[in-house]
Amino acid sequence: MPPLLEIRNLSFAYEGSTALVFDRLNLTVQKGEFILIKGPSGTGKSTLLRLICRLNQPQGGSILFQGNDTTSIVPAKLRSLVSYVAQIPQMIDATVEENLLLPFSFAINAGKTRPGTEELKAMLCKFYLADISPVQSAMKLSIGQKQRLALMRALLQEPLLLLLDEPTSALDHESAAMVFSIMERLNTEEHKTLITVTHIDYKPETVRPLIYKLVHRSLHLHESDH
């Protein structure tokens, strides 16, 4: 069985710049792993996640998903399997339910079962969103609520890999704790594979993460309880 994700000799520089952000970066991710990538702001942590789901294109190297080069996978297919959740949650100007069902309006997810309203309500509870109604506008939610909703929406299309870009950086302490708790539960209970980038000092309580540091344009295994 090939690893879930394998990054080989990845090189990247921003358009119009010759300075490399990544230089022959390597990473292997096995199914079920909980990976934390740490490093100061501006080292390219978010860019790394964006490269994995092809929102940016690398200058060199390759990224394999389940053994296949990601450039050989239809982009929409890749992104339904490898779901990226941005730092600032984005909602369409519609209800909570319409936002949650948005992935099902896309051709690639046409064959997947849409969750019913009751199912969505039950899920909202699990995401600490019991107090919001599926029919209310998503635009009026707080940023912490939007972040949890964005996580829930990404999960509804059942991706194999979740890429979380600084999921708590815009949140207060309480909201951040909720998001961390959700992330850990997704790994322990639903066996989801997660790659989270963060610049804050977060130590998971219930999972054993693989912690990488992004320094000198490449990743270094920093800490592992495995």
């Binding site: 789901c53 929102l55 982009p75 929409a76 297919k77 992104r79 339904s80 779901s83 990226y84 959740v85 941005a86 600032i88 984005q90 369409i92 948005l102 992935p103 309006s105 896309f106 051709a107 690639i108 997810n109 964005a150 929406r153 990404a154 299309q157």
Partner: peptide, 16 residues
């Protein structure tokens, strides 16, 4: 751009 990328991340093709 961020709204378009959000939809791409949820499996939309560029037309959607």
């Amino acid at each position: 751009k961020e709204l378009v990328e959000m939809q791409l991340s949820l499996g939309a093709n560029y037309r959607e």
